[in-house]
Amino acid sequence: MNDPDHPNDPLTIALELERLRGSLEAGFARADGQLALLVQRSDQSDKQLADHEQRLDALERARWPLTSIAALTAVAAVVLGVWELSAR
């Protein structure tokens, strides 16, 4: 009954359980490492997205005077055209 090759031997069962435990620990460690890498990449993507948002906002704020200048130029051109027509 104490034959270690017997499948129902307590020593054999204990050894198999220890091997299974080691395999599970290694698998969980690998999964934890992959999850940590994904979290790091997600954080980097969030930072990059926030940076792009800030840059886009800065570009949009810097652009608004261009439309105002274009509108003022158009109004000035119309006023100048009307003044030239009325001068004839």
Rank of each mutant, 00 (worst) to 15 (best):
R19N: 01
R19I: 03
R19A: 07
R19M: 00
L20W: 08
L20C: 07
L20Q: 13
L20P: 01
R21N: 06
G22Q: 15
G22D: 13
G22N: 12
S23P: 05
S23K: 10
S23N: 09
S23V: 14
S23T: 14
E25F: 03
E25C: 02
A26F: 12
G27D: 02
G27N: 03
G27P: 00
G27K: 01
G27W: 03
G27E: 00
F28Y: 12
F28P: 00
A29Q: 03
A29D: 00
A29E: 02
A29C: 01
A29R: 03
A29H: 02
R30N: 12
R30C: 14
R30L: 14
R30H: 15
A31V: 13
A31G: 05
A31L: 11
A31W: 08
A31C: 10
D32S: 04
D32P: 04
D32E: 04
G33H: 03
Q34N: 01
Q34W: 01
Q34M: 05
L35Q: 10
L35A: 11
L35V: 15
L35K: 08
A36C: 02
L37P: 05
L38S: 09
L38H: 12
L38E: 13
L38R: 09
L38Y: 13
L38P: 08
L38T: 10
V39T: 09
V39R: 07
V39I: 10
V39F: 08
Q40N: 01
Q40A: 10
R41K: 13
R41S: 12
R41W: 09
R41V: 13
S42D: 10
S42A: 10
S42F: 08
S42E: 15
S42T: 10
D43I: 11
D43E: 13
Q44E: 15
Q44A: 12
Q44W: 06
Q44V: 09
Q44H: 00
S45D: 10
S45P: 01
S45V: 13
S45F: 10
S45M: 11
D46V: 04
D46Q: 00
D46F: 04
K47T: 15
K47H: 12
K47W: 12
K47N: 13
K47D: 15
Q48C: 06
Q48N: 05
Q48R: 05
Q48E: 11
L49Q: 01
L49V: 02
A50M: 05
A50T: 04
D51T: 03
D51Q: 07
D51S: 08
D51K: 06
